[in-house]
Design a protein around this nucleic acid. Structure first.
Ligand code: MN
Ligand code: MN
Ligand code: ZN
Ligand code: ZN
Lengths: 153, 153
DNA sequence: TTCCTAAATTAGATTTAGTCTAAATATCAA
DNA sequence: TTGATATTTAGACTAAATCTAATTTAGGAA
Protein backbone atom coordinates (compact mmCIF):
# COMPACT_ATOMS: atom_id res chain seq x y z
CA UNK A 1 0.00 0.00 0.00
CA UNK A 2 1.04 3.55 -0.79
CA UNK A 3 1.63 6.22 1.87
CA UNK A 4 2.82 9.47 0.36
CA UNK A 5 4.20 11.03 -2.79
CA UNK A 6 7.81 10.00 -2.06
CA UNK A 7 6.68 6.43 -1.58
CA UNK A 8 4.44 6.60 -4.63
CA UNK A 9 7.32 7.83 -6.80
CA UNK A 10 9.45 4.98 -5.59
CA UNK A 11 6.76 2.44 -6.39
CA UNK A 12 6.14 3.95 -9.81
CA UNK A 13 9.81 4.07 -10.76
CA UNK A 14 10.31 0.47 -9.65
CA UNK A 15 7.25 -0.59 -11.60
CA UNK A 16 8.45 1.18 -14.74
CA UNK A 17 12.02 -0.18 -14.49
CA UNK A 18 10.79 -3.71 -13.78
CA UNK A 19 8.52 -3.64 -16.81
CA UNK A 20 11.20 -1.95 -18.95
CA UNK A 21 9.00 1.05 -19.40
CA UNK A 22 10.86 4.34 -19.50
CA UNK A 23 10.94 6.83 -16.68
CA UNK A 24 9.87 10.13 -18.21
CA UNK A 25 9.23 13.62 -16.90
CA UNK A 26 5.66 13.47 -18.26
CA UNK A 27 4.91 10.34 -16.24
CA UNK A 28 6.31 11.97 -13.10
CA UNK A 29 4.22 15.06 -13.67
CA UNK A 30 1.04 13.05 -14.02
CA UNK A 31 1.81 11.19 -10.80
CA UNK A 32 2.45 14.45 -8.95
CA UNK A 33 -0.77 16.06 -10.10
CA UNK A 34 -2.82 12.92 -9.50
CA UNK A 35 -1.44 12.75 -5.99
CA UNK A 36 -2.43 16.34 -5.28
CA UNK A 37 -6.10 15.59 -5.99
CA UNK A 38 -8.11 15.25 -2.81
CA UNK A 39 -11.21 13.66 -4.36
CA UNK A 40 -12.13 11.37 -7.18
CA UNK A 41 -11.10 12.88 -10.52
CA UNK A 42 -11.53 12.04 -14.19
CA UNK A 43 -8.69 11.79 -16.70
CA UNK A 44 -9.92 14.87 -18.49
CA UNK A 45 -10.28 16.88 -15.28
CA UNK A 46 -6.68 16.06 -14.44
CA UNK A 47 -5.52 16.95 -17.94
CA UNK A 48 -7.26 20.34 -17.74
CA UNK A 49 -6.01 21.02 -14.20
CA UNK A 50 -2.46 20.31 -15.34
CA UNK A 51 -2.81 22.47 -18.43
CA UNK A 52 -4.23 25.21 -16.25
CA UNK A 53 -1.15 25.16 -14.07
CA UNK A 54 1.15 25.41 -17.05
CA UNK A 55 1.89 21.76 -17.77
CA UNK A 56 2.30 20.74 -21.42
CA UNK A 57 1.65 17.03 -21.00
CA UNK A 58 -0.78 15.83 -23.65
CA UNK A 59 -4.21 14.35 -23.11
CA UNK A 60 -3.07 10.97 -24.51
CA UNK A 61 -0.19 10.80 -22.06
CA UNK A 62 -2.44 11.66 -19.13
CA UNK A 63 -4.84 8.87 -20.10
CA UNK A 64 -2.01 6.37 -20.63
CA UNK A 65 -0.16 7.25 -17.45
CA UNK A 66 -3.28 6.98 -15.32
CA UNK A 67 -3.68 3.40 -16.56
CA UNK A 68 -0.09 2.65 -15.53
CA UNK A 69 -0.71 4.17 -12.10
CA UNK A 70 -3.72 1.91 -11.68
CA UNK A 71 -1.69 -1.13 -12.78
CA UNK A 72 0.98 -0.52 -10.19
CA UNK A 73 -1.57 0.04 -7.43
CA UNK A 74 -1.01 3.73 -6.78
CA UNK A 75 -4.47 4.68 -8.03
CA UNK A 76 -7.88 3.03 -8.16
CA UNK A 77 -10.28 3.50 -11.04
CA UNK A 78 -14.06 3.56 -10.62
CA UNK A 79 -17.05 3.65 -12.91
CA UNK A 80 -19.92 5.10 -10.94
CA UNK A 81 -23.33 4.84 -12.61
CA UNK A 82 -21.77 4.11 -15.99
CA UNK A 83 -20.24 7.58 -16.21
CA UNK A 84 -16.64 8.42 -17.16
CA UNK A 85 -13.91 6.65 -15.21
CA UNK A 86 -12.85 8.38 -12.04
CA UNK A 87 -9.57 7.85 -10.23
CA UNK A 88 -8.33 8.26 -6.68
CA UNK A 89 -5.26 7.62 -4.58
CA UNK A 90 -4.91 4.22 -2.96
CA UNK A 91 -3.66 4.95 0.52
CA UNK A 92 -5.13 2.58 3.07
CA UNK A 93 -4.58 -1.07 3.84
CA UNK A 94 -7.97 -2.00 2.40
CA UNK A 95 -9.32 -1.03 -0.97
CA UNK A 96 -12.35 1.00 0.15
CA UNK A 97 -15.82 0.77 -1.37
CA UNK A 98 -18.63 3.21 -2.17
CA UNK A 99 -22.22 4.04 -1.33
CA UNK A 100 -23.82 6.41 -3.86
CA UNK A 101 -27.03 8.41 -3.55
CA UNK A 102 -28.74 8.30 -6.95
CA UNK A 103 -30.76 11.34 -5.89
CA UNK A 104 -28.19 13.89 -4.72
CA UNK A 105 -24.97 12.26 -5.92
CA UNK A 106 -23.39 12.01 -2.48
CA UNK A 107 -20.62 9.41 -2.27
CA UNK A 108 -19.80 7.72 1.03
CA UNK A 109 -16.62 5.68 1.33
CA UNK A 110 -16.28 2.71 3.64
CA UNK A 111 -13.81 -0.04 4.46
CA UNK A 112 -15.05 -3.59 4.74
CA UNK A 113 -12.73 -6.51 5.23
CA UNK A 114 -15.56 -9.04 4.86
CA UNK A 115 -15.86 -8.18 1.20
CA UNK A 116 -12.28 -9.27 0.68
CA UNK A 117 -13.03 -12.59 2.37
CA UNK A 118 -16.03 -13.16 0.11
CA UNK A 119 -13.88 -12.32 -2.87
CA UNK A 120 -11.29 -14.89 -1.79
CA UNK A 121 -13.93 -17.60 -1.31
CA UNK A 122 -15.50 -16.97 -4.66
CA UNK A 123 -12.16 -16.94 -6.47
CA UNK A 124 -11.18 -20.19 -4.78
CA UNK A 125 -14.47 -21.77 -5.82
CA UNK A 126 -14.22 -20.74 -9.48
CA UNK A 127 -10.46 -21.04 -10.02
CA UNK A 128 -9.77 -17.37 -10.34
CA UNK A 129 -6.94 -15.12 -9.16
CA UNK A 130 -8.34 -11.78 -7.98
CA UNK A 131 -6.63 -8.52 -8.89
CA UNK A 132 -9.12 -6.03 -7.50
CA UNK A 133 -12.83 -5.44 -7.19
CA UNK A 134 -15.55 -2.85 -7.46
CA UNK A 135 -18.38 -2.82 -4.94
CA UNK A 136 -20.89 -0.01 -5.25
CA UNK A 137 -24.23 0.21 -3.48
CA UNK A 138 -26.73 2.56 -5.11
CA UNK A 139 -29.50 4.02 -2.99
CA UNK A 140 -30.60 7.28 -1.46
CA UNK A 141 -30.12 9.28 1.74
CA UNK A 142 -32.63 8.31 4.43
CA UNK A 143 -32.60 11.84 5.84
CA UNK A 144 -34.09 14.23 3.25
CA UNK A 145 -32.23 17.19 4.78
CA UNK A 146 -28.93 15.55 3.87
CA UNK A 147 -30.11 14.79 0.36
CA UNK A 148 -30.09 18.28 -1.07
CA UNK A 149 -26.72 19.76 -1.78
CA UNK A 150 -25.24 17.88 -4.65
CA UNK A 151 -22.22 16.73 -2.70
CA UNK A 152 -20.56 14.93 -5.60
CA UNK A 153 -17.31 13.02 -4.98
CA UNK B 1 -38.60 -10.73 -8.49
CA UNK B 2 -39.48 -11.46 -12.09
CA UNK B 3 -40.22 -14.97 -13.40
CA UNK B 4 -41.25 -14.94 -17.04
CA UNK B 5 -42.38 -12.68 -19.87
CA UNK B 6 -46.04 -12.71 -18.79
CA UNK B 7 -45.05 -11.69 -15.30
CA UNK B 8 -42.58 -9.11 -16.63
CA UNK B 9 -45.28 -7.54 -18.81
CA UNK B 10 -47.55 -7.29 -15.80
CA UNK B 11 -44.86 -5.64 -13.71
CA UNK B 12 -43.96 -3.22 -16.49
CA UNK B 13 -47.56 -2.22 -17.20
CA UNK B 14 -48.24 -1.68 -13.49
CA UNK B 15 -45.07 0.39 -13.20
CA UNK B 16 -46.01 2.54 -16.19
CA UNK B 17 -49.61 3.08 -15.02
CA UNK B 18 -48.51 3.86 -11.49
CA UNK B 19 -46.03 6.46 -12.70
CA UNK B 20 -48.50 7.82 -15.25
CA UNK B 21 -46.24 6.84 -18.08
CA UNK B 22 -47.99 5.64 -21.21
CA UNK B 23 -48.21 2.03 -22.25
CA UNK B 24 -46.95 1.96 -25.84
CA UNK B 25 -46.36 -0.74 -28.42
CA UNK B 26 -42.71 0.36 -28.67
CA UNK B 27 -42.17 -0.19 -24.95
CA UNK B 28 -43.77 -3.64 -25.16
CA UNK B 29 -41.58 -4.52 -28.11
CA UNK B 30 -38.41 -3.54 -26.28
CA UNK B 31 -39.44 -5.63 -23.27
CA UNK B 32 -40.14 -8.64 -25.48
CA UNK B 33 -36.82 -8.44 -27.26
CA UNK B 34 -34.88 -7.78 -24.07
CA UNK B 35 -36.49 -10.81 -22.49
CA UNK B 36 -35.48 -13.02 -25.41
CA UNK B 37 -31.78 -12.27 -24.85
CA UNK B 38 -30.00 -15.12 -23.12
CA UNK B 39 -26.84 -13.20 -22.20
CA UNK B 40 -25.76 -9.72 -21.25
CA UNK B 41 -26.55 -7.28 -24.08
CA UNK B 42 -25.89 -3.63 -24.83
CA UNK B 43 -28.55 -1.09 -25.82
CA UNK B 44 -27.15 -0.87 -29.30
CA UNK B 45 -26.97 -4.63 -29.74
CA UNK B 46 -30.63 -4.83 -28.80
CA UNK B 47 -31.53 -1.99 -31.13
CA UNK B 48 -29.75 -3.70 -34.05
CA UNK B 49 -31.22 -7.12 -33.23
CA UNK B 50 -34.70 -5.60 -33.23
CA UNK B 51 -34.09 -3.74 -36.48
CA UNK B 52 -32.77 -6.95 -37.98
CA UNK B 53 -36.00 -8.75 -37.15
CA UNK B 54 -38.08 -6.04 -38.74
CA UNK B 55 -38.82 -3.79 -35.79
CA UNK B 56 -39.01 -0.04 -36.41
CA UNK B 57 -38.44 1.12 -32.84
CA UNK B 58 -35.86 3.90 -32.76
CA UNK B 59 -32.50 3.86 -31.02
CA UNK B 60 -33.61 6.61 -28.61
CA UNK B 61 -36.67 4.62 -27.56
CA UNK B 62 -34.61 1.49 -27.00
CA UNK B 63 -32.21 3.42 -24.76
CA UNK B 64 -35.04 5.10 -22.87
CA UNK B 65 -37.09 1.96 -22.40
CA UNK B 66 -34.12 -0.04 -21.11
CA UNK B 67 -33.73 2.57 -18.37
CA UNK B 68 -37.39 2.16 -17.42
CA UNK B 69 -36.98 -1.61 -17.33
CA UNK B 70 -34.04 -1.20 -14.97
CA UNK B 71 -36.05 1.18 -12.77
CA UNK B 72 -38.90 -1.28 -12.36
CA UNK B 73 -36.52 -4.14 -11.58
CA UNK B 74 -37.04 -6.27 -14.69
CA UNK B 75 -33.49 -5.73 -15.91
CA UNK B 76 -30.12 -5.11 -14.31
CA UNK B 77 -27.52 -2.83 -15.81
CA UNK B 78 -23.77 -3.41 -15.54
CA UNK B 79 -20.64 -1.52 -16.44
CA UNK B 80 -17.89 -4.06 -16.78
CA UNK B 81 -14.39 -2.57 -17.04
CA UNK B 82 -15.82 0.86 -17.80
CA UNK B 83 -17.18 -0.31 -21.16
CA UNK B 84 -20.68 0.36 -22.55
CA UNK B 85 -23.57 -0.53 -20.26
CA UNK B 86 -24.78 -4.10 -20.55
CA UNK B 87 -28.19 -5.33 -19.46
CA UNK B 88 -29.66 -8.65 -18.41
CA UNK B 89 -32.88 -10.13 -17.08
CA UNK B 90 -33.40 -10.15 -13.35
CA UNK B 91 -34.89 -13.55 -12.63
CA UNK B 92 -33.63 -15.00 -9.37
CA UNK B 93 -34.25 -14.21 -5.74
CA UNK B 94 -30.78 -12.72 -5.34
CA UNK B 95 -29.22 -10.11 -7.55
CA UNK B 96 -26.22 -12.10 -8.80
CA UNK B 97 -22.68 -10.77 -9.06
CA UNK B 98 -19.76 -11.14 -11.46
CA UNK B 99 -16.21 -12.38 -11.69
CA UNK B 100 -14.39 -11.14 -14.82
CA UNK B 101 -11.14 -12.36 -16.37
CA UNK B 102 -9.26 -9.31 -17.58
CA UNK B 103 -7.19 -11.61 -19.80
CA UNK B 104 -9.77 -13.63 -21.77
CA UNK B 105 -12.95 -11.73 -20.93
CA UNK B 106 -14.73 -14.69 -19.36
CA UNK B 107 -17.60 -13.69 -17.05
CA UNK B 108 -18.65 -15.97 -14.19
CA UNK B 109 -21.89 -15.27 -12.39
CA UNK B 110 -22.45 -16.14 -8.75
CA UNK B 111 -25.04 -15.68 -6.03
CA UNK B 112 -23.92 -14.51 -2.63
CA UNK B 113 -26.36 -13.67 0.14
CA UNK B 114 -23.58 -12.37 2.40
CA UNK B 115 -23.07 -9.42 0.11
CA UNK B 116 -26.65 -8.38 0.68
CA UNK B 117 -26.10 -8.54 4.44
CA UNK B 118 -23.03 -6.36 4.19
CA UNK B 119 -25.00 -3.94 2.08
CA UNK B 120 -27.73 -3.78 4.73
CA UNK B 121 -25.23 -3.18 7.53
CA UNK B 122 -23.46 -0.44 5.65
CA UNK B 123 -26.69 1.30 4.74
CA UNK B 124 -27.86 1.12 8.33
CA UNK B 125 -24.60 2.63 9.51
CA UNK B 126 -24.64 5.53 7.06
CA UNK B 127 -28.36 6.28 6.92
CA UNK B 128 -28.91 5.06 3.40
CA UNK B 129 -31.71 3.16 1.70
CA UNK B 130 -30.25 0.65 -0.77
CA UNK B 131 -31.78 0.17 -4.19
CA UNK B 132 -29.27 -2.20 -5.75
CA UNK B 133 -25.56 -2.86 -5.98
CA UNK B 134 -22.75 -3.77 -8.31
CA UNK B 135 -20.05 -6.16 -7.14
CA UNK B 136 -17.44 -7.11 -9.71
CA UNK B 137 -14.18 -8.92 -9.01
CA UNK B 138 -11.55 -8.51 -11.70
CA UNK B 139 -8.84 -11.14 -12.01
CA UNK B 140 -7.73 -13.95 -14.29
CA UNK B 141 -8.33 -17.66 -14.81
CA UNK B 142 -5.99 -19.79 -12.67
CA UNK B 143 -5.99 -22.54 -15.31
CA UNK B 144 -4.27 -21.24 -18.50
CA UNK B 145 -6.15 -23.79 -20.65
CA UNK B 146 -9.43 -22.16 -19.69
CA UNK B 147 -8.09 -18.70 -20.39
CA UNK B 148 -7.93 -18.84 -24.17
CA UNK B 149 -11.24 -18.69 -25.97
CA UNK B 150 -12.61 -15.23 -25.52
CA UNK B 151 -15.75 -16.43 -23.80
CA UNK B 152 -17.31 -13.00 -23.44
CA UNK B 153 -20.63 -12.72 -21.59
C1' DT C 1 -66.80 8.18 -30.29
C1' DT C 2 -64.49 12.14 -31.01
C1' DC C 3 -61.40 15.55 -29.52
C1' DC C 4 -57.51 17.50 -27.29
C1' DT C 5 -53.28 17.83 -24.95
C1' DA C 6 -49.37 16.13 -22.99
C1' DA C 7 -46.36 12.34 -23.58
C1' DA C 8 -43.82 9.58 -26.60
C1' DT C 9 -41.41 8.56 -30.75
C1' DT C 10 -38.44 9.59 -34.48
C1' DA C 11 -34.19 10.51 -37.56
C1' DG C 12 -30.47 12.53 -37.35
C1' DA C 13 -27.38 15.93 -35.14
C1' DT C 14 -24.56 16.56 -31.24
C1' DT C 15 -21.77 15.62 -27.25
C1' DT C 16 -18.40 13.26 -24.77
C1' DA C 17 -15.01 9.92 -23.24
C1' DG C 18 -11.62 7.60 -24.90
C1' DT C 19 -8.53 5.65 -28.61
C1' DC C 20 -5.66 5.90 -32.59
C1' DT C 21 -2.15 7.78 -35.87
C1' DA C 22 2.07 8.97 -37.69
C1' DA C 23 5.54 12.44 -37.15
C1' DA C 24 8.73 14.41 -33.73
C1' DT C 25 11.27 13.65 -29.58
C1' DA C 26 13.54 11.48 -25.60
C1' DT C 27 15.34 7.47 -22.99
C1' DC C 28 18.81 4.48 -21.89
C1' DA C 29 21.74 0.35 -23.00
C1' DA C 30 25.77 -0.43 -25.34
C1' DT D 1 28.12 9.39 -27.84
C1' DT D 2 25.14 6.85 -30.50
C1' DG D 3 21.13 4.55 -32.22
C1' DA D 4 17.25 1.51 -31.65
C1' DT D 5 13.04 1.95 -29.97
C1' DA D 6 9.79 3.68 -26.55
C1' DT D 7 7.28 7.79 -25.69
C1' DT D 8 4.99 11.94 -26.61
C1' DT D 9 2.19 14.87 -29.30
C1' DA D 10 -1.80 17.31 -31.80
C1' DG D 11 -5.42 16.37 -33.71
C1' DA D 12 -8.29 12.98 -36.21
C1' DC D 13 -11.31 9.42 -35.24
C1' DT D 14 -14.72 6.15 -32.92
C1' DA D 15 -18.42 4.63 -30.26
C1' DA D 16 -21.81 5.28 -26.69
C1' DA D 17 -25.18 7.97 -25.27
C1' DT D 18 -27.92 12.16 -25.25
C1' DC D 19 -30.37 15.87 -27.34
C1' DT D 20 -33.50 18.25 -30.66
C1' DA D 21 -37.50 19.69 -32.73
C1' DA D 22 -40.91 17.88 -35.81
C1' DT D 23 -44.43 14.26 -35.93
C1' DT D 24 -47.34 10.84 -33.97
C1' DT D 25 -49.93 8.62 -30.33
C1' DA D 26 -52.17 7.45 -25.78
C1' DG D 27 -55.66 8.07 -23.02
C1' DG D 28 -58.72 11.25 -20.31
C1' DA D 29 -62.68 14.48 -20.92
C1' DA D 30 -66.83 15.51 -22.99
MN1 MN E 1 -13.25 6.53 -3.09
MN1 MN F 1 -25.00 -11.43 -15.10
ZN1 ZN G 1 -28.78 11.95 -1.29
ZN1 ZN H 1 -9.42 -15.94 -18.54
Amino acid sequence: MVFNIIHAKQIFTDFLRKGSYRVTSERSEVLEFAFKQVQHFSADELFLAMKNEGSNVSRATVYNTLELLVKCGILSKHNFLGKESRYEKNLGAIEHDHLICVNCGKIIEFDNAEILKIQENICEKYGFVAINHSFITYGFCKNPDECKTNGKD
